[in-house]
């Protein structure tokens, strides 16, 4: 199996640990991620104003390129996934705006590329049972809370990703790699998103509520699919600790890092040094390092 892979802006830099582990794991699992050529940033926010056609141009161009290169388009980042999938649907269903966009990007794209998140590839094409069979490093006993955030799920009619109130794909994935998934009510809540630059104290409170909920339900780590979520609930723990002295802290690990760990990738390939709260002490404690 081969997929066109759209890394997105952050995965080449700050979220290398999401990107590299994802690429390595694909190799182990026997599917190929072929990087889309000439890609640009997706815009990092789906435009909510009806008249903002311009912001649809970058994701439209990404999709049109994917069409030219002929394949299913996949992403690791939830925000990219959201922007591209929503744009694709809009192009497919809205003739008037499709024409405008096509004129703008000087391409002819009809909205017919399939867009999948990496987790969906694991579920549909690899299969969580096969995934389990490929596990080299048993993660049993590692209690991980899956944080879905917003962008994978909402708007659910457009994303068609999972149940909007009680999604399970992430838990299924965690079971597939032998972790113990921890259900927690805040798994579908918002990390504060771009408020980390607009109103950092607000984003910090969002993150604090999420992490408290995970801890309260017995999580030892939280996993994410999104560099924005990751930043807000990982890096912002610095601010949380300043404000709430008794906050114990909890490692936040990209799902591809956990996947790589389970598949037995060498630890240095997993870039744990890039995570703000170092997950390695927990890994050591669990006998995984």
């Amino acid at each position: 199996m081969e997929y066109l892979y759209f890394p997105g802006c952050t995965l080449y830099t700050k979220a290398k640990n999401l990107d590299e582990a994802g690429r390595e794991c694909a190799k182990v699992l026997g599917f190929e991620l072929k990087e889309l050529s000439n890609w640009t940033c997706c815009g990092a926010a789906f435009p909510l104003a009806k008249d903002n056609i311009m912001a649809l141009a970058p994701p439209a161009r990404i999709l049109a390129r994917a069409k030219e290169e002929g394949g299913t388009l996949t992403t690791l980042c939830s925000v990219c996934f959201n922007v591209i999938k929503r744009t694709n649907r809009l192009i497919r269903g809205d003739e008037e705006r499709r024409e405008k966009i096509n004129t703008f990007i000087e391409m002819d794209y009809q909205g017919d590329v399939q867009v999948l998140h990496y987790l969906e590839i694991l579920k549909r094409d690899v299969g969580f049972d096969s995934l389990k069979a490929a596990v080299k490093r048993d993660l049993q006993g590692l209690k991980v809370a899956p944080f879905y955030g917003c962008m994978l799920l909402r708007p659910f009619e457009e994303m068609e990703f999972d149940d909007k109130e009680a999604p399970t794909i992430f838990e299924e994935f965690l079971e597939g790699i032998t972790c113990e998934p921890v259900d927690f009510p805040y798994k579908i809540e918002c990390c504060g998103a771009f408020q980390s630059v607009g109103a950092p104290e607000v984003a910090m409170e969002c993150a604090y509520a999420i992490l408290n909920s995970a801890l309260k339900n017995g999580a030892e780590a939280v996993t994410t699919t999104c560099p924005l979520c990751q930043f807000n609930i990982d890096s912002m723990q610095r601010e949380i600790r300043e404000r709430y002295n008794d906050f114990p802290g909890i490692p936040i690990i990209y799902f591809t890092q956990l996947l790589g760990l389970a598949l037995g990738l060498p630890i240095e390939k997993l870039d744990f040094n890039r995570n703000d709260v170092d997950p390695r002490p927990l890994m050591k404690e669990k006998g995984l390092l």
């Binding site: 700050k14 940033c41 815009g43 926010a45 998103a193 980390s196 560099p227």
Partner: peptide, 9 residues
């Protein structure tokens, strides 16, 4: 701060 936060912000 990651690019994604700056751009969306």
């Amino acid at each position: 701060v990651p690019q994604i936060a700056l751009i969306s912000g």
